[in-house]
Computed example of a mutant assay.
Amino acid sequence: MLDSFFDHAAMTDGITVRVSVSYLPEQSAPEEARWFWAYHVRVENHSDRAVQLLTRHWRITDAGGGVNLVEGEGVVGEQPVLRPGESHDYVSGCPLPTPWGSMEGRYTFVVVDGEKTGQRFEAAIPFFPLEAGETAQ
């Protein structure tokens, strides 16, 4: 079931990643070729094992075809542990030099309990568009 607040979702190995995105005109400056979006991510553990989010891998594409790959530890400075049934929410932002683009990616997790402790796996972050709307173009 897709939570009505989140427009985009992907499920991999019992991990659901949901995303909602909003264009922020007050933080954008189209006359300076700068558009800004906030995105809210919820990571849900629907598996039967506890996992820890280790790294993030984002592919951010702008309207001109420019691609920015972003990789790093955790999300907004955290590497949350999610036990079965738990979720973790965070909000971050993305500037682009164009009024539209897209984001997608993956998180790397490690199993932290049970017989598969130490096993790493990746969970998809769903593709989602970044669209400023007609007022910003």
Rank of each mutant, 00 (worst) to 15 (best):
64 G>K: 06
42 R>K: 12
33 A>Q: 14
47 S>E: 15
128 F>I: 03
72 G>N: 03
71 E>D: 11
132 A>F: 00
38 A>K: 11
29 A>T: 02
135 T>D: 07
45 N>H: 14
24 L>P: 01
39 Y>V: 02
53 L>G: 07
113 D>H: 10
57 H>W: 02
89 D>K: 12
119 Q>N: 05
77 G>A: 13
135 T>N: 11
102 S>E: 07
44 E>L: 12
129 P>A: 06
66 G>H: 15
124 A>Q: 07
92 S>W: 15
82 L>P: 03
55 T>M: 15
39 Y>T: 02
116 K>Q: 09
82 L>D: 06
63 A>G: 09
7 D>H: 15
20 S>T: 01
67 V>W: 05
53 L>I: 03
55 T>Q: 15
13 D>Q: 13
25 P>K: 04
114 G>N: 12
48 D>G: 07
9 A>F: 11
77 G>Q: 09
17 V>P: 05
130 L>Y: 06
25 P>I: 05
99 P>K: 01
29 A>H: 10
131 E>W: 02
37 W>D: 05
43 V>F: 07
14 G>D: 07
78 E>P: 13
72 G>E: 06
118 G>F: 13
67 V>P: 09
136 A>W: 03
32 E>L: 09
73 E>T: 09
3 D>V: 03
11 M>T: 12
98 T>A: 11
36 F>Y: 04
75 V>F: 15
11 M>A: 07
89 D>R: 15
12 T>G: 04
56 R>C: 06
10 A>R: 08
114 G>L: 14
